[in-house]
């Protein structure tokens, strides 16, 4: 392992540690932002030759789905079919939500350039299959 890769790995582990400490003391981060985005629920399942990622996107317009691959990171965005608000939510009721936004860090043994994306329209879900490196 080169020096650059070593420092990258240390930085990633530090980020993960900070996230865990934050969650321990302050609870999980809210899954929404004042920029009008909400974070979807995601599951990742490992198979012998691949990972299957399912993203739950209720109320999403799947035609607007965008998935950008940056190294091992998948940046996912999708607009909602309509803008939603929760007016009775006292402190944040004025926030207008109009899109999903999230980022997934793929495991190291994957080949992100060979991902397969399948839209499951009737469930408003997206299945991403990522093969493992041979």
């Amino acid at each position: 392992m080169g020096l650059e890769e070593f420092f990258k790995r240390v930085r990633r582990e530090m980020e993960e540690l900070v996230r865990e400490i934050e969650e321990e003391f302050f609870g999980p981060k809210p899954m929404w932002s004042t920029d009008g985005s909400i974070e979807p629920l995601i599951t990742m399942q490992e198979h012998p030759d691949r990972y299957e990622i399912i993203i739950d996107l209720p109320l999403a317009d799947l035609k607007s789905l965008s998935i950008e691959v940056k190294g091992r990171r998948l940046r996912i965005q999708c607009t909602l079919r309509k803008t939603i608000t929760f007016p009775t939510w006292s402190a944040y009721g004025t926030t207008k939500f109009h899109k999903y936004k999230t980022e997934i860090l793929l495991p190291e043994n994957t080949d992100p350039q060979k991902i397969n994306i399948e839209k499951i329209e009737d469930k408003n879900m997206v299945k991403i299959t990522v093969p493992k490196k041979q």
Partner: peptide
């Protein structure tokens, strides 16, 4: 209202998963 409910229930679901 299933889709709106699913959006509202995401955070409870995430914590319940834990």
């Amino acid at each position: 209202e299933a889709e709106m409910l699913k959006i509202q229930a995401r955070e409870l679901m995430k914590q319940t998963t834990k």
